[in-house]
Structures are given as structure tokens and as C-alpha cells.
Nucleic acid binder design. Sequence first.
DNA 1: CGATCTACGACCGTTTTGGTCTTGCTTCCC
DNA 2: GGGAAGCAAGACCAAAACGGTCGTAGATCG
Lengths: 162, 162
Amino acid sequence: MLRLTKKADYGLMALKYLAEQAELADKAGADLHLSGARSAKDIAEAYHIPPQLLAKILQTLARAGLLVSHAGTNGGYALARPAADISTFEVIRAIDGPLFITSCITIHGTCDLAGHCTIKEPLRKVNDSITSLLSGISIADLTEPVDHLPAPMAGGLVSIER
Amino acid sequence: MLRLTKKADYGLMALKYLAEQAELADKAGADLHLSGARSAKDIAEAYHIPPQLLAKILQTLARAGLLVSHAGTNGGYALARPAADISTFEVIRAIDGPLFITSCITIHGTCDLAGHCTIKEPLRKVNDSITSLLSGISIADLTEPVDHLPAPMAGGLVSIER
DNA sequence: CGATCTACGACCGTTTTGGTCTTGCTTCCC
DNA sequence: GGGAAGCAAGACCAAAACGGTCGTAGATCG
């Protein structure tokens, strides 16, 4: 499956939305501090996703330092950093937790299959490739889709340039 | 979490094991047809994984055409193709089903969020990169670990600490 | 004060995972 | 020919993860 959860999806959509709002507010020369701030409800309505769920996701993102929140009337969330400085990897990790492609690699690097898991090492490299791939894609890239993609493999070896 | 299931892990381990057995049998000049065939129980014992579960996984793999099975006494499973010709992607897809990184991309290409899922397209590219990454790694590569690692993508804006 | 909004934790139904059991069919070997 | 060893397949089940809701509390602005 190797798929990310709906929550992560929602989170990315929300971030992208906020990035667009920030850009708009920027052009209008709005107050920098809260430029593009939007309430959870607004975003939820824009994408037709459950408001309460989105709220929780945004809270998580805020706790992770990716968003700044402002309570009270006309409050809401805004990007804590420029969209180009927030990677999709950070978002996914904040929402879905640390990503480890194989089940035997834990945070402690220990494998529950102890000695006999012979496959751990090669998969860890795959894992690293994916994280660096995701790290290379920022929220800004979602708005303006990335055109330079990792090239497919060569021969039997993994070779990804750029 | 973006992690693959234990079944896929088990499957890969089993394939790797069979690849090693095939290599050994090859060197000994054994009968080509069943070279390196091993029973599910043998493999399960080698890695301390539930035999019945492994059996089911191997059956799936056999149905997918990655393994050939042979019933009866001294039967078992063997690689249907050379290890270098079986990609990890095939294995994972056979076990875990089609892999789509985002929940909104289905087999029909439809997004349950219909028009308002603005994030689908960029993520599909990420998805493609991962599949081609996995496609580039064969079972043989698991035995002889890939040394050439994908270079982190350009624009190292984000530093990942673990 | 009161209308908004975030913050947070408890809770719950559904799906997915991981794993077991049972039954049946093949093939080999004595 | 009859077991024993092995695959094949499906029903079944418990535990965990996922997706989502609710209720309450606290901040902020007008």
C-alpha cells in the first residue's frame, strides 16, 4: 500500500491553501504577521473535509512548528515559514509520525527479528531515498508543480540524479 | 506512515532467501528446474516467522507469477525468474496491492474529493518516482546490497534529523 | 459580555493487519 | 497403494490503526 493517510493528505492540502492565501495577502501588501491567516472552518469548507478533523490536523501542524495559530475572533492559522521552506516530508512526518518503510526498523534502529532480518539494510536505503525525495519537495512546489523529477533507474542499481 | 506491511517484509525476505538458495544450487550444478526450491516451513523457520502466514504469502507470490510452486514431498517454492529480473516493486505490489501514495488516487483515477483536490497531481509524480525507485531494485540487489545510493535531491533546504 | 476561534482529550465505528484453523488436493517414496 | 510431506484456499478472529465526532476549556476581539 505504501500510502499516506487521509490526514496527511488533508494537511498538505491545507498547507497549500494557506500558501496561496499568503501569496495573495503578500501582493495586497497586507499585514505581514497574519498574512493569509485562515480559520480551520474556512479551509475545511474550501475542500469539503470534516471541519473538526481538519482542526485537529492543523493543531498538530501548529505544534510541530509548521503553522502559527491565533485564537479568538478572526483568528486562524498561517504558515510559520515561507512555503518554499516547508517540505512535504516535514508535514507528513508531523502528521503520520516518523516514516519507516519497513516494519522492522524502529526509532531505536532495532529490528524485532533481531539477527535474522537480512533485508533491513537495503530497505533502509530505499527509505532514505524516499525521505530525501520528499524533503526536496516544498509546499511551494505543490502550488507550482515540480517539473524536475528523479529519473527512473538505470540497470540493476539505483541511480537517481539531481 | 508510508510503511510497507509485514507481509511484504516477509515476502521480500523469503524471496531473498530463495535467491540465495538458487545461487547455491546453481553452483552445485543442480537440476535447473527446481534449483533452490524450499518449502514454506523451511523459510519460516529460517526467519522465525509464522509458517502459515508465510505460506499464504508465498501462495500469493506464486499466483502473481513470481514464484513457481511444486506440491508433494520435497516440494516447495523457487524463483520463477532470475533474482535480478524480479523487482521489489513487483513483490510489494503483489502482496500489498497497487501502491498509491495518496488516498484520493484510486484504480479508476478518480478522486473522491472530485474537483477540489488540488494536490493530486504533484503527489502522483512523487508516487511515480517511488515506484520507479522500487522497480530499479531487484531481489538480487537485496543480496548484494546496492552501494550506489540515490543522491539527495537538489535544494537541500531541509535538514532531517532523526 | 458574547461571538469566534483555537486547544485538547475522550470516545467510537470501521477497516486493515497479522495470524490461526480447517479442509482438500498433489506428489513422492517406500 | 498408502502414507507422509507439501501446496491451495477460504473462513475466521483479535488487535491495532484510521477516520471522524463530541464536549469542554481557554484565548481574543469587538
